[in-house]
């Protein structure tokens, strides 16, 4: 289990800090969606979660050990799929053989299944594949390592539309109760229905850190509604098919969460979101 406590960080001493006291606990069994505008520090937070960047204040610990030491016993529990990376000029097979040995729970059968799901071949030279292809190889490998913590930075960037659908399938089948997956993205549509906890990063803090079920019990999301229906809406947009809106949810009736709308609402009215979700989870 990964624990982030009172994280503070800034690139330059005088500028406004990137992180101003962030605390977050990553529990096994959930897919975390780390959302935020471009340049807000999503990647930086992911790097800090795996010890590639060091906080100025606060701690990031995995099972009680500071990740910044980058001890092998910590690193073998984390897999990071960066936004941009290079793969070595070797075959898929050689890559798997040389890299899987570092991960005690690696499963070759799973890897082959994910390759099949992505319709990937055992190419001879990984370095020569496109960025989208590289991502699919690395995501397959990452899931097959079965590390308790899997971090992905904008994983669907560079993937074509069929690949995004395959990506969702692979994540859904690669997920289990021992794992936690943290996905940073600003393309929430790609991951709709995949995320079960939402973390919105804004203004150096975590504006929201809640389970989707908890969010829909506080807020009601409607689509294609008439103007009268959305009266008293917290947030609404007009579309061709009528109004899409977020309404208060006094009855606790469940509705399908629209992450994009929630995100826009949170960014526009951060104070309201904080007020609504001020009470700790029951």
């Amino acid at each position: 289990m990964l624990q982030i406590e009172n994280l503070e960080f800034s690139y330059h001493k005088k500028k406004t800090p990137i992180f101003n006291g962030i605390s977050l606990t990553i529990q096994p069994g959930s897919v975390y969606g780390l959302l935020g505008k471009n340049g807000i520090g999503k990647s930086t937070l992911l790097y800090m979660m795996c010890g590639l960047m060091f906080p100025h204040k606060g701690h990031v610990t995995l099972d009680g050990v500071e990740v910044r030491h980058r001890y092998p016993e910590t690193l073998e529990k984390i897999f990071l799929v960066p936004e941009e990376f290079d793969l070595p000029a070797i075959s898929v097979d050689a890559y798997v053989r040389r890299n899987s040995v570092f991960y005690p729970h690696f499963d070759r059968e799973q890897f082959d299944r994910y390759l099949a799901d992505f319709e990937l071949e055992n190419v001879k030279n990984l370095a020569k594949t496109s960025m989208g292809q590289k991502k699919k190889y690395l995501v397959s490998f990452a899931l097959a390592t079965n590390t308790p913590l899997l971090l992905m930075d904008e994983p669907t960037n560079g993937m074509d539309i069929p690949s995004k659908s395959q990506f969702r399938k692979v994540i859904a089948s690669g997920m289990n109760e021992q794992k936690s997956i943290v996905i940073s993205t600003h393309q929430v549509r790609d991951l709709e229905n995949m995320i079960d906890r939402i973390d919105i990063l804004e203004g150096g803090r975590l504006l929201l850190d809640r389970d989707t079920a908890d969010i829909t019990s506080h807020l009601r999301f409607v689509k294609g509604a008439s103007e009268a229906d959305v009266e008293g809406a917290l947030y609404s947009v007009s579309t061709i098919a009528g109004y899409s809106a977020i309404l208060p949810n006094p009855t606790g009736e469940e509705s399908p969460l629209d992450i994009e709308m929630l995100f826009n609402y949170a960014i526009e009215k951060p104070a309201e979101i904080e007020r609504i979700f001020a009470n700790p989870v029951k």
Partner: peptide, 13 residues
Amino acid sequence: RSKRVLYLVVPAS
């Protein structure tokens, strides 16, 4: 950076 990231996360000391 694209190389450094993968260099650093390899689980070796």
